[in-house]
Design a protein around this nucleic acid. Structure first.
Ligand SMILES: [Mn+2]
Ligand SMILES: [Mn+2]
Ligand SMILES: [Mn+2]
Ligand SMILES: [Mn+2]
Lengths: 233, 233
DNA sequence: AAATAAATTTAGACAAATCTAAAATATTCC
DNA sequence: GGAATATTTTAGATTTGTCTAAATTTATTT
């Protein structure tokens, strides 16, 4: 596999994340994500198209090609392994790891990363609960759902948190919620969409709508899938 | 302290190493070291002079300023800590660490490096025996001498090896010489400058002039300094 | 279906880092 | 000391990645 510049890698990674949502990724979305200008995005898209890393027709938005997806998964693998290393070995707090990993992810020596993976014991998820692609680019597709969509009285494990700030970390630590915590929703309040939660035998407590929307869980019971309409091509 | 580009850092580091020898560093020396062209070196020297990292007058060569030296020691600290990490934790062989560290050294997050240092147990030397600057930029000035200059019958410890190739590693492993090995010279042969060496109680063996010139040792006895003429300003 | 607004692309400029070729300076040798 | 040689610097291009401003295309209103 070829090598890509730091800048190219940042674009590829941004598109990978943005295309998790349905439909093609737009110029403005990428520009906003990378704090750059739409004109710069267009320039780079032309370049990545020539390198066959994405599909792109002017004015039509873009999606990564299968080759581009492979590259993206490599970058994400490096990013998340370094985040795990920083948290686990260097005792960085949760909110500090991302920024440093943004730089380390661009050191793309295959042997370095595979040995690091081994050294860390082949971790499955990073400190925020996001899955780490393996050395072949395979990534776990988890059946996470947002805590705000978990039915009442359904035990579940906290599996990831989509906000990586120190503010949410502070709140989660105060409420003693961490990855792997088992909880269930006892009650929902219509007024402010707050949730009453129980964890283990502790007394129940309340969490806000904002918090519930950033916590993702895996149910311990099979859930009846609430269809929300499939994405249409 | 400001941040510098990867390219600027590579020039600073090269000059630091080259100026260990006496006299100013020349344009051609740097160009050769960095596999670049003299014209590119001149361009960069102008830039680094403006940033007050070195002393430079056209045609007169250059030396790092005290500020430039500080920056260089920071880069060398990062480089050698990563080399130690790669060898010690990721089980890279001796000859593999340098190349990877060349990239990692440019990730210049102070907290990352200081925590890495702590995680590694504050190592004093890298896998080649070169001293690692501490978090304040302080570096051990060792009284290493080249094995080829060690007097006969003077016990000494192997403290560093100036060639980092796999070829020398292969030879050193075969002869069971490693950092910390205690040895002394029994005899010198004039014909080819080879040395007869004894390590511990093992039978004596011979090493070539080339090998002796890359091995550095610290004597276990105080040596009478053989003056070779001081550098003149 | 125009008119207006929004999104996107193009045109042209700029900074960083590199290069080749030519000019300027320093060094070496007779 | 002066010619020949080596080193270094300058001049001008090139590549990568970025930007602003203008032009183009698409989407949304009226
Ligand atoms: Mn991250
Ligand atoms: Mn993460
Ligand atoms: Mn090295
Ligand atoms: Mn080293």
């Amino acid at each position: 596999m070829l090598n890509f510049s730091t800048s190219e890698e940042n674009y590829i990674k941004a598109i990978f994340h943005l295309q998790q949502d349905v439909g093609p990724v737009t110029t403005n979305e990428v520009a906003h994500e990378l704090k750059t200008r739409p004109a710069s995005v267009t320039d780079m898209m032309k370049k990545l198209k020539i390198k066959k890393l994405l599909h792109y027709q002017p004015y039509q938005g873009f999606r990564l090609s299968s080759e581009g997806t492979k590259v993206a998964l490599g970058i994400i693998r490096r990013h998340r392994l370094w985040e795990f290393f920083l948290a686990e070995k260097l005792k960085f707090t949760w909110d500090e790891v991302h920024e440093v990993a943004e730089d380390l992810e661009h050191v793309s020596n295959k042997k370095l990363i595979d040995k690091l993976d081994e050294f860390l014991g082949f971790p499955r998820v990073d400190p925020h609960g996001d899955p780490i692609p393996d050395m072949h680019g395979k990534i776990e597709i988890s059946n996470k759902i947002c805590l705000s969509k978990l039915p009442n009285h359904t035990p579940a494990l906290v599996s990831s948190v989509s906000d990586h700030s120190s503010e949410i970390l502070e709140l989660l630590e105060h409420k003693k919620i961490s990855l792997g915590s088992k909880l269930e929703i006892k009650r929902r309040f219509e007024f402010d969409n707050s949730l009453e939660i129980r964890m283990g035998r502790q007394p129940a407590f309340t969490i806000s709508q904002q918090l519930a929307e950033t916590i993702f869980v895996t149910s311990l019971l099979p859930l009846i899938q609430i269809s929300e309409g499939k994405r249409n091509k």
